[in-house]
Design a protein around this nucleic acid. Structure first.
Length: 996
DNA sequence: CCCCAACCGTA
DNA sequence: GTACGGTTGGGGG
């Protein structure tokens, strides 16, 4: 760069926000991707590059760079933790655009610059001063007042939206002070949007007046005692320290290390086809045409670019504190911390998430794990050292060791930590890990000894927790855990609420649902090539199993510290893959914010009435016994009715009943279907078996088992939700499974009456009506279905009417039943075989139905074919929110295996999108209730796939119901504007049966 | 003691 | 035809 050159510095981050608010809010691509800010950016860049001379800038750039904020973790946060702490999460539509605008910048062949630890403004300041020193002119494309301090005779700003150049006179006109006094002015006034403190009662006018009077800030502060107005004088004198701090915060740094020298910012020739390809993908038709004309290429023959960044896209957005995406979520700077810990230096612009992911993989994928480096923390001073180190790095992996797998019963035994030390060279970073034993015991617990004693040389539990609490609760230090919900609950029960976290299990789940398991051991083997010490080698198994507090501390150290070590390595390898795959948003919106929500649901539990269950159990036992007598009578022998093998041998062997089918192991099948068929032929025994099975099922699985799950202290039942168990994105529930409590039969529903509210409360159940069919209508865009849902008509009757030409009025129930089965079948990826089974009709007849259905709803057929093709091409399918479900066997050469995978792949986007919707509702509903003043009176307890169950104070029910219903009905917004309304039914009662 | 198959409860 | 988890029986180590 030389004298006379003209450098343009575009404030990319500032532009995103400004464009977003200035342009039509919902400019979207046809697939729903919001692109308003991207569109504004592209138009502005094109204009600058081609006709800057014709704008108020009046010159053509010779050099140009687009500058972005790297993350919100900057030196300003270090000197003032509250800096920008009041910022709320960026609007949801904006998040994917951060990444897209970086993509756009590259499509324009422009340098895309960001530097860890600094804001875009500091980088701009550094470049501006450097260029100025050479004698070049500078135009800062931004209207942000924070940049006005940089304006000089040679440095101008340019407000691209108003097409207005800003020079020294403009600054004076607007603020009453020349640019060089802007720092002084801002130090006095502070800045509420960035949470920078200022002197109370002093705004820009007063500040300008004071600076005019005293000359500059230093003089003003030195002579503040002379100020006549009492209040003002006192405020200024009292705020002297704050003013100093504010000055540090508002002063832009001009010494940012620049990875790209000025010369590298020289404008290069546009790559026309590349730019056209990008613009085409974005569906910016008029700009595409203009660019194509100008570069003389034919837009119609250029394929749209594959834009790797889609819904989940923001690699690093300014304030991609998307941790805050969910109200109630900790305001962690996950991304920020992630990057600061990067062993691979994040270089300006050039390191894409994919590069980083690849570098991390090579750095950690095979680095051996050395147990001998692990330390045992035995005193508070050492612990403090680890805490300090964690704060310096900003990232710490941690893991709890406890006495139980059940987080509601588990007592803390110890805690392990792992942090990363930056090594001498990139990639050679080392991980240190330690174990902090807290409640290990020694001695023998038998008749001859005096019992177990606390082992020596352990930091006292209270002191350790007091020291760790500020770290664990500090959202700006990222805590990395594997299956964090467990540790979150354990720590919450010990008085610590973890804020600012990542969960390697959930990251893996978002990346690879459907590919293997997401437990630590399998992740470690898959990604690190390392098999961690098996738990049973430490604590034994079976009869010799001991609780972790009885494990020898040295052994415990090797095991526990390794867990933290492995977790940190997994995080380093996996986290960058999220952004690289465009899945950051799925993780941040659908997974991470749900952790505390579910943890609290589990902690609350639900009351069950043991008397009701006990009475039911007695009744069931009696009824079952009666059946047993009759069964033995009819079978003419006593046998174990619960043994399908014995039953099959009797029915089809000794009794020689017809119509037997074999299971895949060659056993006689005794399924309910088979027994029903036999009963239909007039055989008395099979029906009795079916009824007996129902009764014993209810008894053993529910009435007898549930009381065993009542927590000894809370007296409630606390299920455990698994967030990473299903391929589709659904949750699962276990110990006990409260997602399969009977409802279909009258006998079964009695069990639901045992789920009750606490006195003064009711249970409120809110469930989505037909959510999966609505999702289908949305994704496949079926006019009749959309219309039916818009009109609120009976969807199965509509289907029947459409297919069989039968009017809805007076439709026979059998006709509707068949249509209903077909509708369900569609969702399940229909086959003639399955439909025939379901309806007990011939395969050929089922095939006819399906054919007819596809004729009436050709869009469904198209959707299915398109989904299968997508799955074959990519190995996964996507929900409407971008969650992926992988089907690695979709190309299997085994036809039935392949067909199975195809059906699953058809089902997954439907089931998964519905699951995503309710996840969003769960994240949104508690803040919505809190906002309505109902936070203390309404507690979400359970989720059953399309239903949420709350416990609500009696007097709050009327108010809570509409909040819950509307939150659920609008849960897809604003990420997705569904083409079909969602409908939620809600009811409150004293027990779950009546509420449902 | 562990694992699998069969069966069946839910959405 | 999709997605789960729990119980039981029964076999193997």
């Amino acid at each position: 760069m030389k004298k006379g050159d003209h450098l343009f510095l575009v404030d990319g981050s500032g532009f995103i926000f400004r464009a977003f608010h200035a342009l039509p809010a919902l400019t979207r691509k046809s697939d729903g991707l919001p692109v308003g800010a991207v569109s504004g950016f592209c138009n502005m860049m094109w204009k600058l590059l081609t006709e800057a001379r014709d704008t108020s800038v009046g010159v053509t750039p010779t050099h140009l760079a687009v500058i972005f904020d790297y993350s919100s973790k900057t030196f300003r946060k270090d000197i003032y933790p509250e800096y920008k702490a009041n910022r709320s999460a960026p609007p949801e539509e904006l998040v994917p655009q951060f990444g897209l605008i970086r993509q756009a910048t590259r499509a324009f062949n422009l340098p895309c610059i960001e530097t860890e630890g600094f804001e875009a403004d500091d980088i701009i300041a550094t470049y501006a001063r450097a260029a100025e020193a050479i004698g070049a002119d500078v135009t800062i494309v931004s209207s942000d007042k924070d940049l006005m301090q940089l304006v000089t005779a040679n440095v101008h700003m340019y407000d691209s939206m108003k097409d207005k150049q800003i020079g020294i006179p403009d600054v004076i006109e607007k603020w009453g002070v020349p640019p060089e006094k802007m720092i002084d002015l801002q130090s006095l006034t502070g800045d509420s949007t960035d949470n920078i403190p200022g002197i109370p009662g002093i705004g820009p006018k007063t500040a300008a007046q004071l600076l005019e009077e005293y000359g500059d800030l230093d003089t003003l502060m030195a002579r503040a005692a002379e100020i006549k107005q009492n209040k003002r004088r006192e405020n200024i004198l009292a705020g002297a320290e704050l003013v100093k701090l504010s000055r540090q915060l508002v002063t832009l740094r001009t010494d940012v290390p620049l990875d790209m020298p000025l010369d590298a910012l020289m404008l290069e020739k546009q790559d026309g086809p590349k730019l056209v390809a990008f613009l085409k993908t974005m569906e910016f038709t008029s700009l595409t045409r203009r660019v194509a004309d100008s570069c003389d290429c034919d837009a119609s023959v250029i394929e749209p670019a594959v834009v790797p960044v889609e819904w989940g896209a923001a690699a690093h957005g300014p304030d991609l504190d998307s941790d805050t995406s969910a109200p109630g979520q900790p305001t962690a700077s996950g991304e920020a911390a992630a990057s600061s810990a990067a062993p691979v230096k994040a270089t300006a612009g050039s390191a894409t998430p994919a590069d980083l992911a690849a570098a991390r993989q090579s750095a950690f994928g095979s680095q051996p794990i050395d147990h001998s480096t692990y330390v045992t923390i035995r005193d508070l001073t050492t612990l403090q050292g680890w805490i300090t180190a964690a704060r310096e790095t900003g990232v710490v992996a941690f893991d709890t060791e406890t006495t139980s797998l059940d987080p509601m019963q588990a007592d803390l035994v110890g805690l392990s930590l792992a942090i990363q030390e930056n090594g001498p060279s990139p990639g050679a970073a080392a991980i240190r890990a330690a174990y902090l034993p807290l409640a290990h015991k020694t001695g023998r617990d038998d008749l001859f000894s005096d019992g177990l004693k606390l082992a020596e040389n352990q930091v006292p539990m209270d002191a350790a927790l007091a020291a760790l609490k500020p770290l664990l609760e500090d959202p700006s230090v990222l805590k990395v855990a594997q299956n964090l919900k467990y540790d979150y609950l354990v720590m919450k029960r010990h008085g610590v609420t973890i804020k600012g976290f990542d969960d390697t299990m959930l990251i893996s789940y978002v990346l690879e649902a459907g590919v293997g398991a997401h437990g630590m051991d399998s992740l470690s083997e898959r990604w690190l090539g390392h098999k961690p010490i098996p738990y049973k080698e430490v604590a034994g198994s079976g009869k010799s199993l001991v609780t972790f507090d009885l494990v020898d501390i040295d052994k415990a150290t090797a095991y526990a510290a390794e867990d933290a070590d492995v977790t940190l390595r997994l995080w380093l390898v996996l986290k960058p893959r999220l952004a690289a795959a465009g899945l950051a948003r799925v993780y941040e919106r659908l997974e991470r914010p749900l952790v505390p929500v579910l943890a609290e649901m589990e902690e609350r539990g639900i009351t069950i009435d043991r008397q009701i269950l006990s009475r039911l159990s007695g009744e069931l036992a009696q009824k079952a016994a009666a059946f047993e007598d009759e069964i033995y009578e009819l079978a003419s022998e006593r046998f174990n009715i619960g043994s399908p093998k014995q039953l099959g041998d009797i029915l089809f062997g000794r009794m020689g009943l017809p119509g037997g089918t074999k299971t895949k192991t060659g056993q006689w099948s005794t399924s309910a279907q088979v027994l029903e068929d036999l009963a239909a032929q007039g055989e008395p025994l099979p029906r009795k078996i079916v009824d007996w099975r129902q009764l014993t099922k209810l008894k053993s699985t529910y009435t007898d088992a549930l009381p065993g799950y009542v927590h000894p202290q809370t007296k409630r039942v606390h299920t455990s939700y698994s967030m990473a168990a299903t391929t589709t994105g659904r949750l699962s529930s276990s110990e006990p499974n409260l997602q399969n409590i009977p409802v279909r039969t009258a006998e079964g529903r009695k069990i639901r009456t045992a789920f009750i509210s606490t006195p003064g409360h009711k249970l409120l159940s809110a469930d989505y009506s037909q959510i999966e069919l609505r999702v289908l209508a949305h994704v496949a865009d079926i006019p009749q279905l959309r219309q039916a849902f818009a009109d609120g008509v009976d969807i199965h009757a509509m289907t029947a009417s459409e297919m069989f030409g039968v009017p809805v009025d007076g439709m026979p129930s059998e006709v509707r039943r068949r249509a209903k089965a077909i509708n369900f079948g569609i969702i399940y990826g229909i086959s003639a075989f399955g439909l025939a089974n379901q309806l007990s009709i011939e395969r050929s007849e089922a095939g006819e139905y399906i054919k007819k259905y596809f004729e009436r709803f050709p869009g469904i057929k198209d959707y299915m074919e398109a989904t299968k093709a997508f799955a074959r091409e990519h190995g996964y399918v996507e929900t409407i929110f971008g969650r992926r479900a992988h089907y690695p066997e979709i190309k299997s050469s085994n036809p039935s295996m392949r067909a199975f995978n195809e059906r699953a792949a058809i089902n997954a986007p439907i089931q998964g999108s519905a699951a995503d919707v309710i996840r969003r509702a769960m994240v949104q509903v508690e803040p919505a209730l809190a906002k309505a003043g109902l936070g203390e009176k309404t507690r979400m307890l359970l989720q059953v796939h399309d239903e949420l169950i709350f416990e609500v104070e009696d007097e709050a029910i009327e108010a809570a119901m509409p909040v819950i219903v509307s939150t659920m009905e609008n849960a897809a917004m604003p990420a997705i504007a569904m083409r079909v309304p969602l409908k939620v039914d809600a009811r409150a009662a004293l027990n779950w049966d009546e509420a449902h």
